[in-house]
């Protein structure tokens, strides 16, 4: 499964470690929320970056205190119909100021890239190679956005008002 990061297919430095499986001595790992919460300090002390895979039906409250020490938060799309992680992503970025890697896992197709990027994701475990290859292309698909989100893209309404402003200033 290709990982797209910063707009390009890259090697995934993180290893998904299942519950109960032994942790590698070093290197970046992604562990489940349960495993993380059982002993956050021990995991954070370990050499190597730490990421947490956070389920989409769990409140972010338990995660928030640790955010500034995590290298990655992976949110889950069990099916692409299930959009709960979009809200979690926006909250992490926009309300809790998380600025590490925000990774989308699960059923990820190219058709969600724009939504996900706008919600704050910057890393994608993409299901199909063809979709991963099409990432850059897909991100160019839209140039107009109606809603403000934390990604900073200017909304249509603001562009109109700027336009209006510069028109009236030019007169």
């Amino acid at each position: 499964m290709p990982l797209v990061k910063q707009g390009r297919i890259t090697t995934d430095l993180f290893v998904h470690v299942a519950d109960g499986a032994e942790l590698p001595g070093d290197g970046a790992v992604l562990v489940t929320a349960e495993r993380f919460l059982a002993d956050p300090e021990a995991l954070l002390r370990r050499p190597g970056k730490l990421g947490v895979l956070w389920p989409n039906n769990r409140s972010l409250d338990d995660l928030v205190p640790h955010l500034d020490r995590l290298a990655s938060v992976a949110l889950v799309f069990p099916t692409f119909r299930d959009g709960r992680a979009y809200s979690q992503a926006r909250l992490l970025r926009e309300r809790y100021g998380y600025d590490g890697e925000l990774r989308a896992t699960g059923q990820i197709l190219r058709d969600q890239f724009v939504f996900m990027t706008r919600a704050g994701f910057d890393a994608f475990e993409v299901k199909k190679d063809a979709d991963a290859d099409a990432f850059a292309q897909t991100m160019k698909r839209y140039s107009v956005f109606y809603q403000p989100t934390g990604d900073g893209r200017v909304t249509a309404l603001n562009r109109r008002m700027q336009l209006r402003h510069s028109e009236s200033a030019g007169q």
Binding site: D82, G83, Y86, R90, F115, A119, Y146, T149
Partner: peptide, 9 residues
């Protein structure tokens, strides 16, 4: 329209 958070309610 094409809301990035609420297109998969």
């Amino acid at each position: 329209t094409l809301h990035p958070e609420f297109s998969f309610l």
